[in-house]
């Protein structure tokens, strides 16, 4: 019955006039509608553009000036840069930074890969996600707190790590993890890896889970043993994901400030000073803005190598989806 009514009205086209008029939405909404792309993209891009370009250009400006925190700038050309290349502390910090990146990232990668492989072996989805959460908790800890709490745990007088080592009879005397220059650097690397490994776990686990189960079954039918399966299926499939994880981790490790600052403050005797803490000390503590700016420019330039590599890795994929 009702259908017949509708049919009649459809045939008669009674909705015609009204819906035609409803196509009109008024001049303002019409304008917004016609320029919708402009309205959604302009505010964010303006904000982001300002927040990126303004400080960037100011950074470049400062780096060619003799500049203190307060007071006028004096143009000095490349003097800051020249000074940096003659500054032994710069080379020391850079060397520390590079060693720090290599040590922390490889340790975190191994830890993360082990955890990811182990989690991936768990059949139950619920148990898998429980383990993931438990490991991810370490990622959630603010990095400065990570530094502080490990500083306490590694304390030579009442740190739990020393207590365990002494009680287990591994050492007879408590160790100054943070006071001995060599040990301090190792400690910083290990603590940084502790904070970084969960991120690696997440990325590598995601990579492992994209490998189709069929492949392992096919390999089993073909008679491949455990190591052959790992070598011929797991590693090649994990490679792209692992490469990106490594690049990102290197970038993040290279810029580390909080862990070092909280754990050792750069000491003892500059043994843990890295580029980031050096920039902080020069720019904020000593107020030598021009010098710190030039250091920053150099650091960003070095990071650009990683960024370029990363963008090349990701962009093709990224832009193809557009």
């Amino acid at each position: 019955m009702a259908s017949e009514n509708l049919l009649d009205s459809v045939r008669a086209g009674f909705g015609r006039s009204s819906s035609r008029e409803d196509g009109e939405i008024g001049p303002i909404r019409e304008f917004i509608n016609d320029h919708f792309m402009f309205f959604v993209l302009t505010p964010p891009l303006l904000v982001l553009g300002t927040l990126v370009l303004l400080p960037s250009s100011y950074l470049l400006w400062s780096s060619v000036h003799e500049a203190r925190t307060w007071g006028p700038d004096v143009f000095v050309g490349l003097e800051n840069y020249i000074a940096i290349f003659q500054d032994p502390m710069f080379y020391l910090s850079l060397r520390h930074s590079v060693m720090y990146v290599i040590g922390s990232v490889s340790l975190a990668f191994v830890l993360g890969l082990t955890a990811a492989l182990a989690i991936n072996q768990v059949a139950s989805k619920r148990i898998r996600s429980t383990f993931t959460v438990l490991i991810l908790l370490a990622w959630a800890v603010p990095l400065v707190v990570t530094g502080l709490i490990w500083r306490f745990m590694l304390h030579s007088d009442y740190g739990i790590v020393n207590a365990l080592l002494v009680q287990l009879g591994i050492v007879t005397e408590q160790i100054g993890f943070v006071t001995d220059p060599t040990l301090a650097f190792l400690s910083v690397v290990v603590v940084d890896a502790w904070a970084r490994a969960p991120f690696a776990t997440i990325l590598l686990l995601a990579g492992l889970q994209t490998i189709p189960e069929d492949l392992y079954e096919a390999a089993r039918v073909d008679g491949a043993n455990f190591f052959q399966k790992f070598r011929d299926i797991t590693i090649p499939h994990l490679k792209p994901q692992a490469a990106i994880a490594l690049v990102i981790m290197c970038m993040f490790a290279f810029r580390t400030f909080s862990v070092v600052f909280a754990l050792t403050g750069g000491g003892p005797a500059n043994s843990t000073r890295v580029l980031a803490t050096y920039i902080y000390q020069a720019g904020i503590n000593q107020g030598d803005v021009g010098y710190a700016a030039a250091l920053s420019v150099l650091m960003i330039a070095m990071t650009m190598v990683f960024i370029t590599f990363y963008v090349l890795q990701v962009q093709e994929d990224a832009l193809d989806t557009a």
Binding site: L48, V52, L54, P55, S56, Y58, L59, S62, A67, T69, M251, F254, R255, F257, L275, A276, I279, Y280, G283, I284, V289, A292, A293, S296, V297, M299, I300, T303, F306, I307, Y310, V311, V314, Q315, A318
Partner: peptide, 17 residues
């Protein structure tokens, strides 16, 4: 994509000023 990977420490000095 690149902006998100700039090290924040590198921008500390200009922001501070």
């Amino acid at each position: 994509l690149g902006a998100r990977l700039l090290p924040p420490i590198g921008m500390l000095v200009p922001f501070y000023r």
